[in-house]
Simulated assay, not measured.
Amino acid sequence: MSACKYSNILVYALDRALGDTILSTSAIEILKRKFPKAKITLMVRKPYSDLFKTSPILDEVLALDYDHFRSSLSYIIKTARFLRNRQFDLSLSLDHRDRAAILMFLAGIPTRVGAKQMYNGKGILSSFLFTRSITVPYSHDTHVTEFYQGLARNAFNMQADALPFIGKSLPDQLEKALRLFEGIPPNQFLVGLCLCGRSSLKSWPNSFTAELLTKLYKRYHLFFYVVGRQEDLLFADELINQVDFPIINLCGKTDLSELLAIIRISDLLITVDTATMHIAASADVPIVALFGPYSPLKWHPVSDKAAVLWASLPCSPCDASGADCKGEGWCMKALTVTDVFNKTAQQLATIKKLDPRRNSYSEYFSSQPITG
């Protein structure tokens, strides 16, 4: 494919969960290197769009109502007509569902690229609708980003490596994040917590977390906050009720752009296998990541500042089926408080040599002239 042949490219990532969408962006960076002058548009679910709109790699982000899209034939046809009018000349599908190939075909995009099968080995029935259907060699012990990058490399004859990306945080978002923690002493380190997974099998027990935080607070006098979905509010409240020091509960109180800004000013994130983990990795924030029913070989945060714990029981990974443990979550309970404390202490040994991250942002904003 000639680097000057395509000028208007659509990347389809509508059917992916947020963490997977973030990891798939490594393929987009390879695409950008191949076609540096092309306009690249990313199609994602509406709640995810703010996380990518400010990326310098993307020229536009299309936000679709995913629930409506997957349940309404008329909405799919309407979307196809909209895309046809945009006159894309190349599409790259990063999805595993048949809708992607069908939509690109209905949109009349002349060159349509996608995989014959996804990283789980499952074939894509409608892949015959792609004009270029790519076979990507892949192992279950290989990280998911290697699949996406392999798709881009094989499709566009590139020998390149790339990292996942997200957008930048805007100044007003960072200022708002700083105001949440403005009462914290400037020498106190800020640690985020995201220990409730979308599946209960991915969550770490609250009693373990309370014991860990108590030990960390006594040793390092850290300031903690909890992030998560609206559904995680009760989980976080139960945790907070088990300790006798302040923790801010932000579950369900931030959109993704606000969450990103909060993570950017944080010194460390202690997390289970969640999309928040991948946001922190792309924001270059140190991480302690706890894995259980899913393999970190496949899903670990792509960052040299991430420390991963995994018990690797005989029944793990089970991809959150809980078949052997009957939903008891043996693999997460096998991660002891001592294990997580020691791994966190290792991360803090490096972090505490530095000034708390939020101070550099505070100094920047305080140095800006007052206008208006």
Rank of each mutant, 00 (worst) to 15 (best):
L180K: 08
T336A: 05
W204M: 13
A349W: 01
D284C: 03
K326L: 10
S26Y: 07
I370M: 12
K37N: 12
A349E: 03
T344I: 07
G19D: 05
R70I: 15
L106E: 07
L151K: 02
L195Q: 08
F165C: 00
L174V: 15
P164A: 04
T350L: 14
L213N: 01
A63M: 02
F105Q: 00
L268S: 08
G167A: 05
Y119R: 03
L313V: 15
T271M: 00
G322A: 06
T25W: 03
G192Y: 02
A307T: 12
T131R: 02
D244F: 00
T54I: 10
D98I: 05
V227A: 04
F128L: 12
E146K: 14
Q230M: 06
R86M: 11
T274D: 02
T54H: 10
E175K: 03
C4G: 12
D324W: 04
L62I: 15
A13I: 14
G197C: 05
I166W: 03
F245E: 12
N8H: 09
I247A: 03
Q368I: 12
S93E: 05
S360W: 07
K326Y: 04
C318D: 04
D255V: 07
V337H: 05
L10V: 03
N154I: 12
R45C: 12
K78I: 00
R179P: 06
K176G: 11
T79P: 07
F165G: 08
A307C: 07
T54G: 08
Y294Q: 14
I124F: 14
L260I: 09
A281E: 09
S133I: 10
V113F: 08
L103C: 08
S266V: 09
N359V: 06
T79I: 09
L31V: 06
P164Y: 00
P293Y: 05
D50T: 13
Y225A: 12
S321L: 13
A155S: 09
A275L: 08
Y75V: 10
C194S: 11
S203E: 05
R33H: 10
H143Y: 14
V61D: 04
Q347Y: 06
I247E: 01
H140T: 14
A345H: 04
C251R: 00
I57H: 00
R97M: 15
A63G: 09
Y66T: 06
S7L: 08
S360A: 11
S257V: 11
R81P: 07
V226C: 08
G228M: 00
Y12M: 02
Q117W: 11
